[in-house]
Write a protein that binds this DNA or RNA. Structure first.
Lengths: 218, 218
DNA sequence: TGTTAGCTTTGACACAAATCAAATATCAGT
DNA sequence: ACTGATATTTGATTTGTGTCAAAGCTAACA
């Protein structure tokens, strides 16, 4: 939440955020087609969001963690158009969107904050499109790992160690490649001494080498 | 613009939209890094929006036409993070974002409208991610063509005839494939009698066949 | 502590799309 | 209307990933 509010204002804003909901690992926070009522601020746990085709192919569109907002897809049609699944036991703040709209008419700071959140999501997706449209498998995985540690580090975790909450298949879906290719690319980075991998545990040994892969590669 | 306003309200809203700007073919409406001040509603002409890597690869992230809004990427950092280029001579309404924010605090209908526009863009990008991550060249081009005629038809143009405003390379960039592959796929559809192509002119002969390609394909 | 089910790794092979290359067509500007 | 620049098509070949298959690893549960 943004700064710059009086105590009284904070109180009103806090009210929007007071409802909590726990989501067990593997459970849906919301699903494609569900009626849209609220945005969700993740307090703990990691989620994946995904869309599916009729024939059953899944595309993971993002992995979200503490402090991030999910549910923005639902605003336009008053119904969600993707699935949000907890990858580990999680807790979210349920923020009824009508309350958000009411309050953000009252508080310009909050209004601006909401707009920035939506714009940030658009910009994030632009970057993913670049990744999916232009990059090769190694670049994609390098970008993915760097993005992940950076976000984890911003939340007080290690700069170099990651415990992945998602499977190779989910990583592959997000990055537009098959799980075998994800696995092979992990192995390749490991052979080159850039990372250490043991199943879900990844240690980034040479972050510069990863950066090099994904911005020097022609 | 949404309905349900009084005459007086309409007047105030119209004021936001009164500034016009002409953009010549090939010119930038805004570029990556430009200070963000306004959203732009396209009145005439077609734009492409794109992002680039340091090493010069371009990823087209969308083609926008009359009635669509560009510039949402700029809100989060008060600076644009993509380029918007006119693919033909165009005219836009310049809508200073601070005016939009002021007015949408006053008019809940407008506020809701702005939120929906941003959410719609998020949902659109989700679909593009599915396309880039999961589909094969033929499916991508089929989906692209169907999307294009559908939007053109909604604007009063033909259901079956398209004059492309973008090159094969720009289509390829958008769809995550090389221009040669775009050209070959056009030729293949043409050989199969699904479409007729002559350079930028495309006539969709069998729309069902295109639909079949992109939702029946395993 | 054994057993099962679900992940992950690795190998061999196939194939869709990229790359390289050349010919043709079209457009913009003089 | 000519001319150079740009866009498009098509062919030959290469290559990065996908596909299929099998074995190994891990974790959860009885």
């Amino acid at each position: 939440m943004p700064l710059g509010f009086t105590e009284h204002e904070m109180k009103k804003i806090d009210d929007v955020v007071k409802t909590r909901r726990r989501v067990k690992q593997g459970d849906l926070l919301f699903g494609d087609g569900d009626t849209f009522t609220s945005l969700y601020a993740i307090r703990t746990g990691v989620f994946k969001t995904s869309v599916s085709t009729e024939d059953g192919r899944e595309q993971v569109i993002g992995f979200q963690m503490a402090g991030e907002i999910v549910g923005l897809d639902g605003i336009v049609n008053d119904a969600h158009s993707c699935n949000a699944v907890a990858l580990e036991d999680a807790e979210v703040c349920v923020m009824p969107f009508s309350n958000i709209e009411d309050l953000s008419r009252e508080f310009p700071e909050l209004q601006r904050h909401v707009h920035k959140i939506m714009s940030r999501e658009i910009v994030r997706e632009n970057k993913v499109m670049m990744l999916l449209g232009n990059m090769r498998a190694e670049e994609r995985l390098a970008a993915f790992l760097l993005n992940l540690v950076q976000r984890l580090h911003a939340r007080g975790f290690s700069q170099s160690e990651i415990v992945l909450r998602m499977t190779r298949e989910e990583i592959g879906s997000y990055l537009g490649m098959k799980l075998e290719t994800v696995s092979r690319t992990f192995s390749k980075f490991s052979d080159e001494g850039i990372i250490q991998v043991k199943q879900r545990y990844v240690r980034i040994v040479k972050p510069e080498a990863l950066k090099k892969i994904f911005d020097l590669q022609a």
